[in-house]
Design a protein around this nucleic acid. Structure first.
Lengths: 252, 252
DNA sequence: TAACTATAATTGTCTATACATTTCAAACTT
DNA sequence: AAGTTTGAAATGTATAGACAATTATAGTTA
């Protein structure tokens, strides 16, 4: 057993399970415990530090959820192999960093109106002939007076909440759905593609036609998985990038 | 308390904590428990079903890690508001789906050689003048005889393992590092951008110059956060897309 | 009225124990 | 030699209880 005995302070305000979690994490990270190798058994750790087995399990559960070890009933608990081919691109929204940096940004409403449904739109929303109207929004996001992205959004029209406010407090698609329809957005599907921008998009964003752009199509569903909103956003390719940190260090 | 009493079977092979987790999840998902609202206290649930409070806590811990509720000591546990603006794009590797579909695919090694380090390369690896050599790889990934992506990779040259095998068993950057160097890849940084492809890339991939492409630059680090590999990959924009499912349903 | 205090309620941590389930290997049987 | 049984070891589930830490509220006091 490779554990140092003097590393856990039972009288500390820091929970024992957390101290043990950090201690094991450190040993795995430093390579004292190598991928594929078994970590000490719960009983060994428990008796070594004179703490309850349930407390040990709590610490190991943290390691499991961090993906650093995996447990096999009847065999033991083993150090996982880092999966560096795993790519995870994550952002609260595409403009999160801009907003967090304290830059001067705004979302401008170019247009908002009620439109008649055509077949293409009805198909996107999986609706029949009886749905005749949708809400239609066109917005531009800009930071430091530079236009960065352009977005078109559609939501189902609800008779009960037809108010189109001039100011958009929450211009996100789920926000618009919550404000202007009777539906509650519960889940969403997003597809990210690259594209060459159209002339219209280029002129709005002030870039050259056919410039490479990110294109994100989003469908928002309510609690019954019924589509209640759809949007298509174009982001300047020269102003956006996605960064991903993979492997064990990402949790630090 | 909105819980149905007849929904938990103590004699079932399905763990009690899991039954309770599913039951609470269902109630939140259906809207019986609404965002911001408090769920029943641990003691209430515990005495209602006549199960231990620790078992209740286990179930609630699952809800917390799923992001559906949050607990506040001294106050209670509350239903979270879905964050639909959260975008998570995840893939084991960019070609995972192609491989899983059972398509006929292969990675072709166009070139592999030892090169002299120039300043740009040394800067990427944060190395001094003493590192003079690197390994250099050029590969093409294709499926159904169509070329889909092109990748250039660099790793530090290790005297002890200079063997360049003609067949690449694991053509991924971490794989090449593990095979051909003395370093152990432990973490990675990836940056995804859009770009217009160069003439060279266009001719290799058989697409038009300036076509929009995904561009992924990757830096791989060892356990001391020392850069040990770098790659740049170009993916045809008309053949790849990233899909993301957000919200509470994603865990099902 | 305002500030402080005591108390109850709620979640957080930890223990000690019991039994179930799975795996593996040694011992046994055929 | 091959298959079977048995038992030990390891993780998985569940319980009952104790005390800590935090929050909100009701009550008390200045």
């Amino acid at each position: 057993m490779v554990i140092q005995t003097d590393m856990i302070d039972k009288s500390s305000v820091i929970p024992i399970y957390y101290q043990l979690f950090k201690l094991l994490e450190e040993q795995i990270r430093r390579g004292d415990l190598k991928p594929g190798e078994a970590i000490p058994t719960e009983h060994e750790i428990s008796s070594h530090f004179e703490i309850s087995r349930m407390t040990v399990r709590r610490a190991i559960a943290e390691l499991v959820s961090a993906g650093m070890v995996y447990a096999q009933q009847g065999r033991g608990t083993f150090v996982a192999t880092p999966k560096l081919d795993n790519i995870v691109f994550e952002l609260n929204d595409f403009n999160q960093e801009i907003k967090q940096r304290g830059l001067n940004y705004k979302t401008t409403l170019l247009e908002a109106k009620i439109i008649r449904a055509d077949k293409e739109l009805r198909d996107k929303f999986e609706l029949g002939e009886d749905y005749k109207r949708f809400l239609y929004f066109r917005t531009v996001f800009s930071a430091e007076d530079e236009r960065l992205s352009y977005e078109v959004k559609y939501t189902i029209y609800s008779k009960s909440k037809p108010i189109l406010e001039s100011e958009l407090k929450d211009p996100s698609l789920p926000g618009l759905i919550a404000t202007h329809t009777e539906y509650v957005p519960m889940s969403a599907k997003k597809v990210l593609q690259v594209a060459a921008c159209t002339e219209e998009e280029a002129s709005i964003l002030g870039i050259a036609s056919n410039s490479p752009v990110f294109l994100i199509e989003q469908t928002v569903y309510d609690q019954d998985l019924k589509p209640v909103g759809w949007s298509k956003a174009v982001y300047r390719g020269d102003r956006y990038k996605l960064t991903s940190y993979d492997g064990w260090y990402k949790k630090d």
